[in-house]
Simulated scan of single mutants.
Amino acid sequence: MPAHRTPVTSAATTLTARALLLDMDGTIVNSDAVVERCWRQWAGEHGLDPDEVMKVVHGRQGYATMAVLLPDRPMEQNHADNRRMLAAETADVDGVVPVAGAPAFMAALAGLPHALVTSADLRLAEARMGAAALPMPAVRVTAESVGASKPDPEGFLKGAARLGFAPEECVVFEDSEAGIAAGRAAGMRVVGVGPRAAAHAPDAHVADLTRVRVEALPGGGLTLHISS
């Protein structure tokens, strides 16, 4: 089945695909409270403006965020800090909740090809998905699975390969600039979720997942009915 996008009206979009690739934080799980706590503390420790730090943390692995913010610091220090940050974030699930509509959206994907593609490591992904009471997809690409952080497309390309589909047959759900860029670089269509995504020209944009309806197609594949 060829994948295609059919605009319906300015307020509605239909996308057909063989598989979906889902970011986690900001897309199906709202972890902003934890991210704010941990990264604002890190910013203070390094004499950085917390508001400026928060503009670049979303979507990337921690070490990649640190490399952007502290370009002259040795990368081994970024990786050491990243390990410490991952432990702190894994231990802190206070305020972690599902994005609106995520429980029904994930339930609709049961039995359909989909994968989690996240910059979190597996322990953090399990902690946050569990705190949000969302099912962990059987196929997941976490930080341990890739050699490069988003906006590099490696994670999405690996997710598509593990599901057995070509990039153009997949639709990405993302909330961040880095994630949207990664999905686009992978040759995939992108649905942007939430306020951060709106500024980065995804193929379709929704405020949350209550605006997405999933329809399984006879013989395989699915249709996304998206309302703005």
Score class of each variant (00 low, 15 high):
Arg40Gln: 10
Pro151Asn: 04
Val206Ser: 12
Val212Lys: 11
Leu48Asp: 12
Gly95Met: 06
Met66Leu: 15
Leu134Trp: 04
Ala185Lys: 15
Ala80Gln: 14
Thr9Gly: 03
Glu169Gln: 15
Leu86Lys: 05
Ala216Arg: 10
Thr223Gly: 15
Ala91Glu: 08
Ala148Cys: 08
Ala12Gly: 07
Ala67Asp: 12
Gly183Val: 01
Leu112Val: 07
Pro167Trp: 13
Glu177Leu: 14
Gly164Ser: 05
Val146Asn: 07
Ala12Tyr: 10
Ala197Lys: 11
Leu217Phe: 00
Thr210Cys: 12
Glu169Phe: 04
Ile180Phe: 06
Met1Asn: 10
Val35Glu: 08
Gly130Ala: 01
Ala17Phe: 06
Val35Arg: 09
Glu144Arg: 04
Arg5Ser: 14
Arg83Asp: 14
His205Ser: 10
Ala138Ile: 00
Val191Leu: 13
Val117Lys: 07
Ile28Val: 13
Ala87Cys: 07
Arg5Lys: 05
Gly59Asp: 04
Thr9Asp: 15
Gly192Lys: 14
Pro2Asp: 09
Arg84Val: 14
Val57Cys: 03
Leu134Thr: 02
Glu36Phe: 07
Leu20Glu: 05
Arg162Trp: 11
Val34Pro: 06
Ala181Tyr: 09
Leu122Thr: 15
Pro103Trp: 02
Glu169Asn: 13
Pro218Gly: 07
Thr9Tyr: 02
Asp152His: 11
Gly130Lys: 02
Arg211Lys: 15
